[in-house]
Simulated assay, not measured.
Amino acid sequence: MRAARVRAEAGEAEVRRLNRDLERMVAERTADLEVANTQLEAFAYTVSHDLRAPLRGMEGFARILLDDFADGLGPKGKRHAERIVAAAQRMEALISDLLTFSRLQRIDVSLRAIDPTGIVRTAANEAHALAGPEDAIIRIDEPLPKVAAEPTVLKQVVGNLLTNAVKFRKDGEPAQVRVWGQEFDGHVRLWVEDQGIGIAPEHQERIFGTFERLHGQEAYPGNGIGLAIVKAGAERMGGRAGVESTPEAGARFWVELAAPKPAA
């Protein structure tokens, strides 16, 4: 009897020791994570300020050459200056998207019940302006169902999907885009459906990765981060994103989020 009690006490002491070790390890990992987040924020600040400043300087001086010294440059010199401007603009867009992707990993996301209709309208107007009045027809099936989301993150997600939809249109045809909602089993799917060039089945998971591109810059400009931002934003709101598509028959991108809980 005594031996059993001794073994039990020894076992309890071992459990307490293991618990102390586990708590210590969790505290150390938490501290390491906080340091890593601080370093990531410092890196984002450096990218935003220290890298953008010389980049804008390069673009500015190249534009001065084109505006004030075009006659002296000659055709070849003008082409080189124009390439500098275009490259600087692509780098600026890449830095901006990298910062957005980085911020999505760190920001505090507070979900609340929202009507996404206004957010979708704003994003549609911006996508329409980007494409041009004759190059995009965007239809929103209102009213859209309410979702549990963070408004800023949701606007980034929807905006990127609409930008993609108007960009990847068939040559010589205006983009035709439809946004609609679907409710099921306590969830809501927001769909962005287009009639563009479509995506082959083997690429439909890959395109949500960072820096994944299926087309060259000449055909469809971009940096391969837009859909990675969509995926990260959806996941930060507790949801997910995906696509259904057939080549040359358009694509239907969706973002699935929780439906708001009924008021008590």
Rank of each mutant, 00 (worst) to 15 (best):
E23C: 09
A228I: 02
R83T: 06
A131N: 03
G242H: 06
A175T: 00
L257A: 04
H128Q: 14
S102N: 11
M91Q: 14
G250V: 07
I199P: 01
D194L: 07
H80T: 14
G250W: 08
L130H: 02
V153D: 05
L257C: 04
G196M: 06
S48F: 14
K231G: 10
M91N: 07
S110I: 09
E59C: 04
A219I: 13
P174I: 04
R112S: 12
A263P: 03
V192S: 07
Q204G: 03
V6G: 02
I114F: 05
F168G: 03
D135I: 05
P54Y: 07
G186D: 03
N19L: 06
E41F: 12
V15G: 08
F43V: 08
H49I: 15
R169S: 04
F168M: 08
E212W: 06
H203Q: 14
M237C: 05
T246Q: 15
A36T: 15
V157C: 04
M237H: 01
E212K: 11
S110L: 13
G172F: 06
K146H: 14
V85H: 01
E134L: 11
L144K: 10
T152D: 15
A131Q: 00
P133R: 12
A62W: 05
K146W: 07
A36V: 13
D50G: 02
A124G: 11
I229N: 06
D115A: 10
P145S: 13
G57Q: 10
D135P: 07
A10R: 12
I207V: 15
F43G: 08
W191H: 12
P221R: 13
K167Y: 00
D67P: 01
M91I: 11
A219R: 13
P201G: 09
R7P: 00
R112L: 06
V157W: 00
G186Y: 00
L55Q: 07
A123L: 01
A27F: 02
E248F: 12
D67T: 08
D194P: 09
E150C: 15
V120M: 02
M25Q: 13
K167S: 04
R83C: 09
T46G: 11
E248P: 09
V192E: 01
L51N: 07
V6F: 06
N37L: 15
K155I: 11
F184S: 11
A70D: 08
H187C: 08
G233N: 00
F101R: 01
G181L: 05
I119W: 09
A263R: 13
R24I: 04
G222C: 14
A81T: 01
A27C: 01
N19A: 13
A263E: 12
A53K: 14
A87W: 01
A10E: 05
L99D: 03
